[in-house]
Computed example of a mutant assay.
Amino acid sequence: MPNLAPYIAFPGNAKDAFEHYRDVFGGDLQLFTYADMPMEGAPSTLDPASVAHASLTLPGGTIVGGDAMPGEDYPIRGSAYSLMYSLEDPDEARRLIALLVDAGGSVGMPFEPAPWGAYYGQVFDRFGVMWAFDVDAEEPTQA
Protein backbone atom coordinates (compact mmCIF):
# COMPACT_ATOMS: atom_id res chain seq x y z
CA MET A 1 0.00 0.00 0.00
CA PRO A 2 1.45 3.42 -0.89
CA ASN A 3 2.44 5.63 2.01
CA LEU A 4 3.73 9.20 2.14
CA ALA A 5 5.93 10.10 5.10
CA PRO A 6 7.81 13.31 5.86
CA TYR A 7 11.61 12.95 6.01
CA ILE A 8 13.66 15.28 8.20
CA ALA A 9 17.44 15.63 7.81
CA PHE A 10 18.79 16.74 11.19
CA PRO A 11 22.16 18.47 11.74
CA GLY A 12 23.62 15.66 13.88
CA ASN A 13 20.88 15.36 16.51
CA ALA A 14 18.46 12.94 14.83
CA LYS A 15 18.76 10.37 17.65
CA ASP A 16 17.76 12.95 20.27
CA ALA A 17 14.93 14.25 18.08
CA PHE A 18 13.41 10.86 17.29
CA GLU A 19 13.66 9.67 20.90
CA HIS A 20 11.97 12.91 21.97
CA TYR A 21 9.16 12.41 19.43
CA ARG A 22 8.67 8.83 20.67
CA ASP A 23 8.47 10.11 24.25
CA VAL A 24 5.91 12.79 23.30
CA PHE A 25 3.75 10.96 20.77
CA GLY A 26 4.39 7.29 21.54
CA GLY A 27 4.70 4.87 18.66
CA ASP A 28 7.28 2.42 17.42
CA LEU A 29 10.79 3.80 16.84
CA GLN A 30 13.34 2.06 14.66
CA LEU A 31 16.72 3.75 14.54
CA PHE A 32 19.85 2.66 12.68
CA THR A 33 23.28 4.28 12.87
CA TYR A 34 25.91 4.05 10.16
CA ALA A 35 27.66 1.51 12.41
CA ASP A 36 24.55 -0.68 12.01
CA MET A 37 24.61 -0.46 8.20
CA PRO A 38 26.93 -1.84 5.53
CA MET A 39 29.41 0.92 4.74
CA GLU A 40 30.43 -0.18 1.23
CA GLY A 41 30.39 2.82 -1.08
CA ALA A 42 29.57 5.28 1.73
CA PRO A 43 31.71 8.41 2.19
CA SER A 44 34.57 7.76 4.61
CA THR A 45 33.70 10.96 6.50
CA LEU A 46 30.51 9.46 7.98
CA ASP A 47 30.43 9.23 11.77
CA PRO A 48 29.49 5.64 12.66
CA ALA A 49 27.33 6.99 15.53
CA SER A 50 25.30 9.25 13.20
CA VAL A 51 21.75 8.17 12.38
CA ALA A 52 21.52 6.67 8.92
CA HIS A 53 17.77 6.06 9.13
CA ALA A 54 15.08 6.50 11.75
CA SER A 55 11.40 5.69 11.46
CA LEU A 56 8.71 6.51 14.01
CA THR A 57 5.33 4.93 13.35
CA LEU A 58 2.55 6.82 15.11
CA PRO A 59 -1.18 6.39 15.16
CA GLY A 60 -2.08 7.84 11.77
CA GLY A 61 1.32 8.15 10.15
CA THR A 62 5.07 7.79 10.03
CA ILE A 63 7.96 10.23 10.39
CA VAL A 64 11.32 9.26 8.93
CA GLY A 65 14.70 10.93 8.91
CA GLY A 66 18.33 10.85 9.90
CA ASP A 67 21.41 12.96 10.28
CA ALA A 68 22.32 15.06 7.24
CA MET A 69 25.33 13.96 5.25
CA PRO A 70 28.57 15.87 5.92
CA GLY A 71 28.58 19.17 4.05
CA GLU A 72 24.79 19.35 3.75
CA ASP A 73 23.27 22.37 5.40
CA TYR A 74 19.50 22.17 5.61
CA PRO A 75 17.86 24.81 7.78
CA ILE A 76 15.26 23.16 10.00
CA ARG A 77 13.50 26.06 11.66
CA GLY A 78 11.16 27.82 9.29
CA SER A 79 7.59 27.84 8.12
CA ALA A 80 8.08 26.48 4.59
CA TYR A 81 6.97 23.11 5.91
CA SER A 82 5.34 21.70 9.02
CA LEU A 83 4.14 18.36 10.29
CA MET A 84 0.33 18.44 10.54
CA TYR A 85 -1.09 16.22 13.25
CA SER A 86 -4.86 15.90 13.03
CA LEU A 87 -6.51 14.61 16.16
CA GLU A 88 -10.05 14.01 17.36
CA ASP A 89 -9.79 15.58 20.82
CA PRO A 90 -8.74 19.20 21.53
CA ASP A 91 -7.53 18.17 25.00
CA GLU A 92 -5.18 15.59 23.49
CA ALA A 93 -3.79 18.24 21.14
CA ARG A 94 -3.30 20.60 24.09
CA ARG A 95 -1.50 17.85 26.02
CA LEU A 96 0.91 17.18 23.12
CA ILE A 97 1.52 20.89 22.59
CA ALA A 98 2.32 21.28 26.29
CA LEU A 99 4.81 18.39 26.12
CA LEU A 100 6.59 19.95 23.15
CA VAL A 101 6.68 23.42 24.74
CA ASP A 102 7.72 22.13 28.19
CA ALA A 103 10.64 20.31 26.57
CA GLY A 104 12.05 23.53 25.11
CA GLY A 105 9.68 24.31 22.23
CA SER A 106 7.75 27.50 21.59
CA VAL A 107 4.25 28.36 20.47
CA GLY A 108 4.13 29.73 16.94
CA MET A 109 0.34 30.16 16.90
CA PRO A 110 -1.90 29.51 19.91
CA PHE A 111 -4.13 26.45 19.70
CA GLU A 112 -7.65 27.85 19.62
CA PRO A 113 -10.87 27.80 17.60
CA ALA A 114 -10.20 28.67 13.97
CA PRO A 115 -12.49 30.59 11.60
CA TRP A 116 -13.03 27.46 9.47
CA GLY A 117 -14.67 25.58 12.33
CA ALA A 118 -11.76 23.63 13.75
CA TYR A 119 -9.14 24.06 16.45
CA TYR A 120 -5.71 24.89 15.11
CA GLY A 121 -2.30 25.88 16.45
CA GLN A 122 1.42 25.66 15.72
CA VAL A 123 4.43 24.79 17.86
CA PHE A 124 8.14 24.84 17.06
CA ASP A 125 9.78 21.98 18.94
CA ARG A 126 13.22 22.31 20.52
CA PHE A 127 14.79 21.01 17.30
CA GLY A 128 13.17 23.73 15.18
CA VAL A 129 10.52 21.53 13.53
CA MET A 130 7.12 23.18 13.19
CA TRP A 131 4.15 21.06 14.29
CA ALA A 132 0.64 22.13 13.29
CA PHE A 133 -2.21 20.64 15.31
CA ASP A 134 -5.70 20.42 13.88
CA VAL A 135 -8.89 19.12 15.50
CA ASP A 136 -12.27 19.24 13.77
CA ALA A 137 -14.77 21.06 15.95
CA GLU A 138 -18.05 19.35 16.74
CA GLU A 139 -19.85 22.59 16.06
CA PRO A 140 -18.56 25.46 13.89
CA THR A 141 -17.07 28.22 15.97
CA GLN A 142 -18.36 31.77 15.69
CA ALA A 143 -15.71 34.11 14.27
Rank of each mutant, 00 (worst) to 15 (best):
M1D: 10
M1C: 08
P2Y: 05
P2S: 07
N3C: 07
P6M: 02
P6L: 01
Y7H: 08
Y7G: 03
A9F: 05
A9E: 10
F10Q: 03
F10T: 00
F10K: 00
P11F: 07
P11R: 04
N13H: 05
K15Y: 00
D16V: 00
D16N: 06
D16Q: 14
A17D: 02
A17M: 00
E19D: 10
H20Y: 12
R22T: 13
R22A: 15
D23E: 11
D23Y: 00
V24P: 04
V24Q: 04
G27K: 07
D28S: 12
L29N: 05
L29M: 02
L31K: 01
F32S: 13
T33I: 06
M37N: 08
P38V: 08
M39G: 15
M39E: 15
E40G: 13
G41K: 04
P43V: 09
D47P: 04
S50K: 09
V51P: 03
V51M: 00
A52S: 13
A52Q: 11
L58Y: 12
G60V: 11
V64S: 08
G66A: 06
G66E: 05
M69T: 02
P70L: 12
E72C: 13
Y74I: 12
Y74Q: 09
Y74W: 12
I76H: 03
I76L: 15
G78I: 04
Y85K: 14
Y85I: 15
S86G: 10
L87R: 14
L87C: 13
E88V: 08
D89L: 08
D91Q: 15
L99E: 14
L99I: 00
V101Q: 08
A103T: 11
G104C: 06
S106T: 11
S106I: 03
S106H: 02
G108R: 05
P110Y: 00
P110W: 01
P110Q: 08
F111Q: 09
P115K: 05
P115G: 09
W116I: 04
G117P: 01
G117K: 05
A118R: 09
G121A: 08
Q122S: 14
F124I: 01
D125T: 04
R126E: 06
G128K: 00
M130S: 11
W131A: 07
W131T: 06
A132K: 05
A132G: 09
F133E: 10
V135T: 10
E139W: 07
P140V: 10
T141F: 15
Q142N: 15
A143N: 06
A143S: 07
A143W: 03
